[in-house]
Amino acid sequence: MKHFVLACLLAGAMQCAQAANSEEDWQVLQKAALAARALSYQGIFVCQSGQKTKSVQIKHYFDGQNEFGHNVVLDGTPREVLSQGGDLVIYNQRNEKVVIEKRRGQNMFPAILPTNLDLVKTSYSVRSGDTERVAGREAQILFLEPKDNLRYSYRFWIDKEYGLILKSVMFNGNNQMMDSIAFNQLNLFNTVDLDWFKPRIDHKKNYVMEDEVPTKADTNISPHWTLKELPAGYRKVDQMIREVHGKPFPVTHVIFSDGLASVSLFVEPLLNGIKPRVGHSTVGNTSFYSNVAGYLQITVLGEVPEVTVAKIANAVVFVK
């Protein structure tokens, strides 16, 4: 009996210690999310997705109130991303033209974690691993593992001094690497001038604004369809009406997120004479699923396992 009580106490204490550990690990991630936004740093990181690899030069500056970023893709076709807060301007070279695209920015490396981790905590658990050197710096490895099969897992290498994410790798359920981003050079700076915050203009090229893809926020609840139960941990984060290339009518675009991964749902009416699209696939880190609900064409895709896109597609119910 005595032994049993002792064993229970020991087990309880271990569980307590584990919970405390994981709370510490969450704090490390929280700090990483803030450090990526509140530090001024520059370096080069390498981004790999599927068969493609790109090196990117990054400079990020925080003046105490605003964030400024300038990212230059060093491999292949020139491409630059300038960011101020959440607003992005992308200079995308296509043949003899440079197309200027405007976007809303989010989760740009190394700021891939949201500052509020509550939603992430409901779907993932965290544990720490070894320390390793990345980009010449000491890093703590943290494993962010999903609590179910509805999302991929992540491994982060976090700078022990700066708190920044130095390397991030996403794995699927079979422990295959889906994509990775890692600094191979990083240092902090504290100059205050913003001379560098401008694109490298090539005077021989013709600069044009991208044909604006009209989108507008959609707050109306459609009378034609409704969503039943979503896969665990996913929340609707945005809904808009947008034009999709090649579609005669605007399409409803709904975005879901579990705090890290995003899934897009497109709902549009089936058109006479156009064959309904029914199918699924996974290419690289992106899963795709489309089916038909009543008179509606449903299309879902995102950087999540196929089961998640299928569940979201099947959550759409046609209302007669």
Partner: peptide, 10 residues
């Protein structure tokens, strides 16, 4: 509308 960290570059 829902970019991943790598889709800005790839």
């Amino acid at each position: 509308s829902a970019p991943t960290a790598s889709s800005y570059y790839i």
